[in-house]
Design a protein around this nucleic acid. Structure first.
Lengths: 248, 248
DNA sequence: CAGTGGTCTAGACCACTTC
DNA sequence: AAGTGGTCTAGACCACTGG
């Protein structure tokens, strides 16, 4: 039982979270078994109950633990743990989770006016332009998606200049390093056939179905910071999504 | 400024949440404006700061507020508020959110052995059977999806007997009333063409693309309680999903 | 009944933002 | 310097579960 470091700049509740996470992932705390009770954790780690509860509450939100009033706090099923419940990870992260190596190729990076739809999604003025990035995304070297990203221009100026870095990495990571941190993402999914450019670039049969996804992201203040159109041929990629069901 | 009722069986933090929610939805607290600071709320509602913080923390998790250290607590964009961030709502609820009237028709309700795939998803013994429900789902009277639900049999016995109630309502609601409460849902999405039965029942063109969705739900303990296969023709229904982006 | 988590109080000190 | 949210303490009483 590790001891929490009061000299550590990281908060005590955060250190406790990390200790418990580590014990869960290493198998010291098996699924469906009770973890030590709150008073026990208070005694073991020499912190107050409020600190213990903050750690536990966050782990419950992250899908690692569940509580039962009067019974105890238990470790969730591995399937529930697998993906931090109900949060969106970047595509690159998701591929790594599945044991695939994310990659990509930057086809185009340009400054354009953009379609009506794009301009509306990004809430642009008449004068503002958009950065347009066209990418092929790969998993273990195989092309699995065609993706076009649009970013509002004056704000994404630095992202535009560093666009090549986003080719095989995460655009969100590049955006974040320039102060454009996604806070929320709106998606629209529909089944569709590939268009000619997609058939050509992804080298798929002409009549193949796939998933067409539009995604608009917003920062903490609600300002739109990116709009993405993508096509995933069904033979190459399936979407998986694990969500907490709304309570009550 | 309403006063919280200490005689009310509902917890104080919950009452405070409801008051703030009401003020946000009614427009008394506009998006991007700061709500009263924590010490102010403490004074106004005569509760401790911990109680105020519990209310605020939950509203942050629900996507109604965001905090900025040293600056204040602010009301989120309406788009962020619209859907309780990152939680899954039932299909019927989602239709109502879009202003459509959910409905449906129960085609088949039977007790069968089920395919290998279904049996694996529900983790059945060799002896156990599955309840199979075949439904057409409608929005404002128009058929928008073909759906087959599978429930583990001995456990879903009462649901089977009351199956007709799920025709135009929510199966999850019926399940919940029988003690099968979904806690987590795993989805797999892919673009696909309709099969003959779907073309026939939904009366759609033979080559139309749509979305094929598999959904397995689990209760709090991680036991699978339902498996669903569904097809949504693209011309009739698009999936929308709003998610909080994973923090760090 | 004892033990669990759920709610609540009245303080304290800190880090961060703004002026 | 003043005001904000972030962390933390040491208590208290309650509602629920189990033997």
């Amino acid at each position: 039982m590790p001891i929490l470091e009061r000299s550590n700049p990281l908060p005590l509740y955060y250190q406790l979270k990390e200790v418990l996470k580590q014990q869960i992932h290493s198998g010291h705390l098996a699924p469906h078994t009770a973890i030590p009770s709150e008073p026990e954790l208070v005694a073991q780690y020499h912190v107050s109950r409020a600190t213990v509860r903050q750690a536990l509450t966050e782990l419950v939100h992250e899908g690692l633990l569940y509580r039962q009033h009067g019974r105890g706090t238990f470790v969730c099923e591995p399937r529930v743990q697998q993906r931090v419940a109900s949060e969106l990870k970047s595509f690159s992260e998701e591929l790594r989770r599945r044991g695939l190596k994310p990659g990509g190729m930057l086809l185009v990076s340009e400054l354009v006016r953009g379609s009506q739809h794009v301009r509306e999604q990004l809430r642009l003025n008449d004068e503002e332009q958009v950065v347009r990035l066209e990418r092929i995304r790969t998993a273990d070297g195989e092309a699995i998606a065609y993706e076009v990203n649009y970013l509002p221009y004056p704000r994404a100026m630095n992202v535009y200049q560093r666009a090549k870095e986003a080719a095989d990495g995460s655009l969100y990571q590049l955006m974040a390093s320039e102060g454009m941190v996604p806070y929320m993402a709106e998606h629209v999914f529909k089944g569709d056939k590939a268009n000619e450019r997609e058939i050509d670039l992804l080298k798929i049969p002409a009549d193949e179905c796939g998933m067409r996804v539009e995604c608009t992201t917003f920062d903490e203040t609600g300002a739109p910071i990116s709009f993405t159109e993508a096509f995933y041929p069904s033979s190459r990629y399936e979407f998986q999504l694990t969500l907490r069901v709304a309570s009550k």
